[in-house]
Design a protein around this nucleic acid. Structure first.
Length: 424
RNA sequence: GGAGGUGUCGCAUAGUGGCCUAGUGCGCCCGCCUGCUAAGCGGGUUGAGGUUAAUCCCUCUCGCGGGUUCAAAUCCCGCCACCUCCGCCA
């Protein structure tokens, strides 16, 4: 949700923002009309209600004939107040519903256009040249099988397509990566969290996942719970309906949680292996700060993600996501894409979004400052999404004999192991 | 899952249909007084919205949502959270 005043004062700015996302500018005018209608009904209700209250006080003091007359009047007023209140509730609901559909305007720096209109900000590291080394790289499915790390067949048997087991050294890798990520975040000042992965509708709605993204979300209709697609949901809702002391900002949390995604509309895409799956575990960073500080915080988030990828000794590039690919909540998003040898291309490993005040307004997260109370800004960033990290590590650091070299920084988390060896 | 209890301003509490424009104490903020501090004295102190150039003013807000009534913190119904106990369970 954006600031209504921006819409009222400069609607063309928001219409233009819609165009840059490739979305309809007409929504802006729909919202303005509904806001106008809403305010009219409010004024009408409040006028009647004030009269009702004033008359009620006279009733209490009056007696006899005067009292009877007042009662007759106020009885009739009472019905009109009820009507006016219902009209106000309806108009307000209609306005809110329209407002909820409006995405966060993209930052001016974000490139206009859709998924393919990103700009590349930088490249870090050189993709490994396997032909120069004289061998054909295996993909993570084959490597995972040989190492006894990934069992996709049994994942499909038990849970269906896009499920897997991490076994043996694969499971060890997950714990190693999680611990290493947590250590990094904690030393950067983040508070560790284990949040719920099942949330009620307002948390999902507030983070912006019930709009177009709803098709990608698992819902438990019996209890009206949602399975989170990212711990961002539980972390953003953590301070909902709260007023935080401005001096306590930024508040930085790092969470470990499972993530569930239906991956609707991705049939036939990335079907092999564990690159795109219905469930995975993730370590996610989250910050609450001020709007003014959010831009610098976004850069810091990106910095921590790059630091992480550097420690995994991966080659990657950073892209500035185009407006149309931002999702409802983000004003700007940077993705870090690692080179994946058997994809012969870059694939998204981490992603960081600045949601400015958008989520905070929906979830009612505010800060108290010297000059008053204002909505905060929220930011999120991946540290490690386990399956994709495993894919990148196995494929990038594989050796001709089918073993995998362990990046130096990760070795202490794997009991000093320098390589992962095939099981047979 | 079952039974009972509780839910009022930052905290603690008062408030059993109109006197509530929600009182009082503590805390906090501003001022006075004062060698300093404390005490004392005076004032202020929920949030959201409408209106406005801004103030004034008005409406909503006593866990949430309905209802009864001319009128609800107060009466009725439903829900939620917490506490106690029983059952079940990792």
């Amino acid at each position: 949700m954006i600031d209504l005043r921006i819409l009222r004062n400069d609607p063309e700015l928001v219409r233009d923002a819609q165009r840059r996302r490739g979305e309809s500018p007409e929504l802006v005018d729909e919202i303005l009309a509904k806001d106008e209608a809403r305010r009219t009904t409010i004024a009408h209700f409040e006028m009647l209600r004030a009269e009702q209250k004033a008359t009620g006080k006279q009733v209490a003091r009056a007696a006899g004939e005067e009292r009877a007359q007042l009662l007759a009047h106020t009885r009739e007023l009472s019905a009109r107040v009820k009507e006016a209140e219902a009209a106000q509730t309806d108009a307000d609901g209609a306005y809110r519903q329209a407002m909820k559909r409006l995405p966060n305007p993209a930052a001016p720096e974000a490139p206009a256009g859709g998924e393919d209109d990103y700009t590349v900000i930088e490249h870090v590291g050189e993709p490994r040249d396997f032909s120069a080394e004289g061998f054909e790289p295996l993909d993570h499915v084959e490597l995972g099988k040989r190492l006894g790390a990934i069992d996709i067949e049994r994942g499909a048997k038990v849970a269906g397509a896009r499920f897997y087991y991490l076994t043996g050294v694969g499971a060890e890798l997950e714990f190693a990566l999680v611990n290493m990520a947590m250590d990094q975040a904690r030393s950067a000042g983040f508070t560790m969290m284990i949040p719920p992965a099942l949330v009620k509708p307002p948390a999902m709605e507030g983070t912006g996942f019930l709009g177009q993204a709803a098709a990608d979300v698992y819902h438990l209709p019996g209890d009206d719970f949602y399975l989170v697609g990212t711990s961002e949901v539980a972390l953003a809702a953590y301070h909902s309906d709260e007023v935080l002391d401005g001096d306590s900002l930024p508040r930085r949390y790092v969470a470990f949680s499972p993530c569930y995604r239906k991956e609707a509309g991705s049939y036939g895409k990335d079907t092999r292996g564990i690159w795109r799956v219905h469930w995975f575990d993730k370590v996610e960073m989250f910050s609450y700060t001020t709007l003014e500080e959010s831009y610098a915080e976004h850069e810091r988030m990106l910095g921590w993600e790059k630091q992480w990828l550097d420690k995994l000794e991966l080659a990657y590039r950073v892209i500035d996501t185009a407006a149309g690919d931002l999702g409802l909540s983000a004003a700007r998003k940077f993705d870090c894409e690692a080179w994946i040898p058997t994809r012969s291309g870059y694939g998204e490993l981490t992603s960081t979004s600045n949601c400015t005040e958008f989520q905070a307004r929906r979830l009612n997260v505010r800060g108290r400052f010297a000059d008053g109370i204002r909505p905060l800004a929220t930011l999120n960033g991946t540290l490690v999404a386990i399956p994709r990290a495993i894919v990148a590590i196995l494929e990038t650091h594989q050796q001709a004999d089918g073993s995998v070299r362990v990046p130096v920084a990760l070795q202490p988390y794997l009991h000093g192991r320098t390589t992962l060896e095939p099981v047979q």
